[in-house]
Design a protein around this nucleic acid. Structure first.
Lengths: 221, 221
DNA sequence: CCGCATCCTCATGGATACTG
DNA sequence: CAGTATCCATGAGGATGCGG
């Protein structure tokens, strides 16, 4: 029999006339914002999402994507190579609140990595968030390489931003373990400590420009 | 038998080495951020929270408060008048990401209020969020009165902020229905339309200063 | 393989009653 | 007033199936 369960589940609403509560109605369910975080650097395939978000059930991923699409946050694209999911312009604007929440959560990284999963892709949200307030003129570009994955951190007079799959590789590349990269950005390590640890290599001069110690700290808790 | 169910439920963690994911581990569960929103303007009693968050189950409220306290977001205070809950300094810093998410969700208010609940207290988060970017020099103070509840919106050169239970009432008070107040702030209504509707009274001159039409719109979707 | 849909089990949320 | 205790409904997690 051709029964097609459309599964148009209507998510539980808070029923409040409040922009914040209505935002949570759209993106407040479990896994939803993590899917958006994955898509922030660029479109992804279903299976890429599934493997990057270790632990999400396949039916949940499908349902969240459907819900996000229905609400105009995510766009489902049929390309020659297959299906890909991308953020709509409105969905991409989640970047700001998410970066802010990541900054708020930075102290929670102090307990270390433990057995937690890590995807270098997540740095695209975390690094600009943690370095908010840092500016550079002339602009600085620094390659970051972790777990065999490369992204470029750019700092100009408007602040930091991250790019994945850049046109050209910057001349200076920092190669280090996730804890070191994140610790650096969060201020848990100074450039000198990191250099002394021998855990990464890079051009000290450029790094010192990019990561000044005297920025206002959002993580001094 | 004296069995005391401590109910130290350890909430499901995403298990990711990512500040954003860890933040969601702390405040990502259902109702949690709405509790924080309630506490942003100031401490509240258990029953106040319960009635303001219409629809939350009492056991859930108790459990969320316990979890927030255990994570250092909320502080439980025993005062002479009873128990009150307040945000810790770290918890209060959620103000920024929450305001940003509220701004993102502003377009969702366009569908109108419908049967949704409304608490004037929520304006303390919404109004500064929606008016982000508006400055005034010299500072402007405007009373807002809705549903028999008053707060003061202050705009100075640093931007807008809201106060509840202010020391003194400003000379100009805007008294209107929730939809009108929110619509005004979101840019859905102009001062002229609002005045023409006869739904509120106020000093047009001051209002025009406080709500300039030519600000950058975050709600043009 | 990729992109899901179904099924099953158990954890979490929601409603209500009750208690110090 | 400030919660606990209980019970039922719903959503999450995991395995598997299945058409393209």
């Amino acid at each position: 029999m051709e029964k097609v369960k459309q599964t148009v589940r209507t998510p539980r609403s808070y029923g409040q006339f409040c922009a914040f509560a209505r935002a949570l109605d759209v993106v407040g369910e479990r896994w939803t914002l993590l899917i958006v975080r994955e898509l922030l650097p660029g479109p992804m395939r279903y299976t890429e999402l599934k493997t990057s978000l270790a632990g999400i059930a396949t039916n949940l991923l499908a349902e969240r994507l459907r819900s996000l699409e229905a609400n105009g946050v995510v766009e489902r694209r049929l390309e020659q190579s297959g299906v890909s999911y991308a953020l709509t312009p409105w969905g991409a604007e989640l970047h700001e609140p998410m970066e802010a929440l990541g900054r708020w959560g930075a102290p929670l990284l102090e307990t270390g990595r433990g057995d937690d999963a890590f995807q270098p892709r997540w740095l695209a949200l975390a690094l600009p968030g943690l370095l908010r307030g840092v500016t550079a003129n002339p602009p600085v570009e620094l390659g970051i390489e972790t777990n065999g994955f490369a992204l470029v951190l750019r700092i100009d007079q408007d602040g930091p931003s991250a790019m994945i799959r850049p046109d050209r590789q910057p001349s200076t590349v920092l190669s280090a373990a996730p804890e070191v990269v994140v610790g650096l950005a969060a201020g848990g390590l100074t450039i000198d400590q990191a250099l002394a640890s021998g855990e990464f290599r890079g051009d000290r001069q450029v790094l010192s420009t990019a990561f000044p110690a005297e920025r206002e700290s959002a993580v001094d808790r």
